[in-house]
């Protein structure tokens, strides 16, 4: 019995499993453990200047005091609900714009001559060579009242008084779309470049106009790219902090800013943790759907 257990134990740690162990350990230490700590915090209470532990050992008894107050507080203060909603809204708008702009972009990259494609990919990634923060600041100088865009429009006589663009949903959306566009284009491109042009020819041969071919063949077959790109944009966009902070305004509530305030202004770590956990749960939903779809369509691709 024992020998069998030992050999079982051994086989788990042999070969392939040993290789997988390293990244598993990495993920556990850097993702799971912090997450569990945050989860732990979210069930505790704030004492004067420190976080009360939910674990108590006294009189030979371990008591765990789970405080649901932080979560229940969400129901009392509409700010949280509104902020979540607004975060999801801005993330969704960003995703849709990225898709609308990124799809044609990726499509023409994939249809470009083969020797041009690596260069086009480089161009998409070019912004990553400068600091993200700098690039967002640069947008600020473009969009402020006496910024480049307003000056240009006034010089052209399109407008007479400067437009209020900064600190509006407009400036936030521009900044978000700008920052996340490459994350949409790259997976879409990787998908579209593999698309068999003979399928497009076959559709044309059977009487489908180029427009019909696009909607009936290209789009369905690039579904995985669309979903992957959308996830890559949507998930970080929900929790985005820097862009709303720099380009957003009073009417662009984002959960990232609320988180920051709870942590660093209010110093209410348990509340901040609860906000985080709810955000993660909100994001988990689309990921689960994606994974399910991914597993389904994978078998289809092995044709």
């Amino acid at each position: 019995m024992l020998a069998r257990l030992i050999s079982r134990f051994r086989s788990v740690f042999r070969g392939r499993n040993a290789v997988i162990l390293v990244p598993m350990l990495w993920l556990f230490v850097l993702s799971a453990v912090p997450l569990l700590i945050v989860l732990n915090f979210s069930f505790s209470e704030m004492e004067i200047a420190s976080v009360a532990s939910i674990w108590k050992w006294a009189d030979d008894a371990l008591t765990i005091k789970i405080n649901l107050g932080n979560y229940l507080y969400f129901g009392q203060d509409p700010l949280y609900f509104d902020t979540y909603l607004s975060s999801l809204k801005f993330a969704a708008i960003t995703t849709l714009w990225c898709l609308a702009l990124g799809y044609p972009f990726a499509y023409f990259m994939a249809r470009a001559q083969a020797h041009l494609r690596p260069m086009l990919v480089m161009l998409v990634m070019l912004p990553f060579w400068t600091s993200f923060l700098l690039r967002i600041y640069a947008w600020k100088t473009l969009l402020v009242s006496n910024g480049l865009v307003n000056q240009l429009l006034m010089a052209l006589g399109v407008i007479h008084t400067p437009l209020q663009m900064m600190n509006t949903p407009f400036s936030l959306t521009i900044g978000m779309v700008y920052a996340y566009l490459p994350f949409m284009i790259l997976p879409l491109y990787a998908n579209l470049v593999k698309l068999d042009v003979r399928l497009l020819e076959a559709a044309a041969d059977l009487g489908a106009s180029p427009w019909k071919t696009f909607w009936l063949i290209t789009v369905p077959l690039s579904k995985r790219g669309i979903i992957a790109g959308s996830m890559l944009v949507f998930i970080p966009a929900v929790g985005e902090y820097v862009i709303p902070e720099l380009l957003g305004g009073p009417d662009t509530l984002m959960i990232g800013r609320v988180l920051w305030d709870e942590f660093f202004s209010n110093n209410d770590w348990p509340m901040a943790s609860a906000v985080t956990i709810v955000m993660i749960l909100l994001i988990l939903l689309p990921i689960t759907i994606f994974n399910k779809y991914n597993a389904e369509s994978k078998s289809e691709e092995q044709a």
């Binding site: 076959a202 041969d205 369905p220 691709e301």
Partner: peptide
Amino acid sequence: LPPYQRPINMMFQSYALFPH
């Protein structure tokens, strides 16, 4: 005439069946 307006159909060497 573009391919989609010709009363001609082709069977492709690779079949080019729509996988979805």
